[in-house]
C-alpha cells in the first residue's frame, strides 16, 4: 500500500513535470526558439513548485510533532504573517521589484519568528504553551500591522499588489529566482532528515524528555529554526501558499500510520504533488489564478477521500 502511494505520487510528479507542451500545445507546433523560451519559464516554475511543496510538506510535519498538535502549521509562530508584513512594507515604502519583495518578506518572516521565540524566553517559562501563546501574540500584532499597511495603501495599484502577493502564485518564477531558494531548501531538508530521530524526541513531555537527558529547549529551537527557514525561503518567493503545511503531513500519517523518515519523505512528496497540481490548474484557466485558492480547493476533497478510504477498511 505504501509502495503504491509512493510510486503513485512520484509518477504524478513526473507527469506534472512532463506536461510541458500540454497547456500550450500550439507552441509545440510552433518554432523551436519559442519552445526553448517556454522551457526557461515552465521548467523553473515546475521545479519551484516541486521544491516549495516539498518544503512545506516537511516543515508542516516537523511543526506538528514539535507543537504536539495535529493542527499546527507553519503559521503557528508567525512565519506567514511576518512575511506578509514584510512584503506589504516593501510594496508600499520602496516600490520594490519582485526581488526586493522577496528579500523583505524573508526578513519579515525571520523577524516575526525571532520575536515569538524571544517572547517565549522572556516569559521565563520555556515550554510549549508559552511558545504557542507568543506565536498567537506575534500573529495578532503582524495582522494588525498588515491591516494598517493595507489601509494606507493605494487601492488602485498597491493594495491589489499586496493582496495578490498574499494569495500566492508561481507565475512570476523565472530561472534567476531558483538557485537561492533551492539551495536553502535542499540544505534545510537534508538537515531535517538528519535530525529525524531527534524530532520524535520532542513528542515527549518536557519532563520525560529532560529525564532522558534531552536538551529540550535547545533542540526545539534548533529544529524550529530549520523548519522556519524552509518555510520562509519558500514563502518569500512564492507568496503565501496555504493548506499544504497542514494537509500533507496528515495525509502521510494517515497512510503510513506512523512517524518516521519515510513519513517525512512522503509528507514532502505529497506537498509537491498537491502544489504541482494546483499550479497546473492555476495556469491553465483563463487568468493566472493565485495558487492558494487551488491548494485548499484540491486539498480538502483529497483528504476527505483518503479518510473515506481508510474508513472503509
Amino acid at each position: 500500500m505504501t509502495a503504491l502511494v509512493f510510486t503513485g505520487a512520484a509518477f504524478f510528479l513526473s507527469l506534472c513535470t512532463g506536461k510541458y507542451p500540454l497547456s500550450l500545445s500550439e507552441l509545440l507546433s510552433g518554432d523551436e526558439a519559442g519552445l526553448r523560451v517556454f522551457q526557461t519559464l515552465r521548467l523553473p516554475r515546475t521545479v519551484m513548485a516541486l521544491c516549495a511543496g516539498f518544503c512545506l510538506g516537511c516543515a508542516g510535519m516537523v511543526y506538528q510533532i514539535i507543537f504536539q498538535n495535529p493542527l499546527a502549521s507553519p503559521d503557528i509562530i508567525g512565519v506567514s504573517s511576518g512575511a506578509s508584513v514584510g512584503a506589504a512594507a516593501a510594496i508600499l515604502f520602496i516600490q520594490a521589484s519582485p526581488a526586493g519583495i522577496t528579500a523583505w518578506a524573508f526578513g519579515g518572516a525571520l523577524i516575526a519568528v525571532f520575536f515569538a521565540l524571544a517572547l517565549t524566553s522572556l516569559t521565563g517559562q520555556k515550554n510549549l504553551t508559552s511558545m504557542v501563546l507568543s506565536g498567537i501574540a506575534v500573529n495578532a500584532l503582524a495582522q494588525s500591522l498588515l491591516m494598517a499597511l493595507k489601509f494606507t495603501a493605494d487601492p488602485e495599484k498597491e493594495l491589489a499588489s499586496i493582496e495578490y502577493w498574499i494569495m500566492g502564485s508561481l507565475g512570476s518564477i523565472t530561472a534567476s529566482k531558483i538557485p537561492v531558494p533551492l539551495i536553502v531548501s535542499a540544505a534545510g531538508i537534508l538537515l531535517l532528515f538528519f535530525f529525524c530521530q531527534k524530532i520524535l524526541l520532542l513528542s515527549l513531555s518536557d519532563e520525560e524528555a529532560r529525564a532522558l537527558g534531552v536538551p529540550v529547549t535547545l533542540l526545539r529551537l534548533l529544529l524550529l529554526s530549520i523548519a522556519t527557514l524552509l518555510v520562509a525561503a519558500t514563502v518569500s518567493v512564492t507568496g503565501l501558499i496555504g493548506f499544504i503545511g497542514l494537509l500533507a503531513p496528515h495525509t502521510a500519517r494517515l497512510l503510513l500510520k506512523t512517524n518516521s523518515r519515510t513519513t517525512l519523505f512522503l509528507s514532502g512528496l505529497l506537498g509537491s504533488a498537491l502544489l504541482l497540481t494546483a499550479d497546473l490548474i492555476a495556469r491553465s484557466t483563463v487568468a493566472e489564478l493565485p495558487v492558494s485558492i487551488l491548494t485548499s480547493a484540491l486539498g480538502a476533497p483529497f483528504l476527505l477521500w483518503i479518510l473515506f478510504q481508510e474508513g472503509k477498511k
Binding site: Q68, L200, L204, E207, E208, A211, L212, T258, N259, S260
Partner: peptide, 23 residues
C-alpha cells in the same frame, strides 16, 4: 547536568507522554 544525570538515574513516570505515533 541533565544528560550526565540521565546516565545514572532513570525515571519512569506514571504514564508515558509519547504523543506521536511511532513503532
Amino acid at each position: 547536568n541533565n544528560r550526565k544525570l540521565a546516565q545514572h538515574i532513570s525515571y519512569i513516570p506514571q504514564k508515558s507522554s509519547i504523543s506521536a505515533s511511532m513503532p
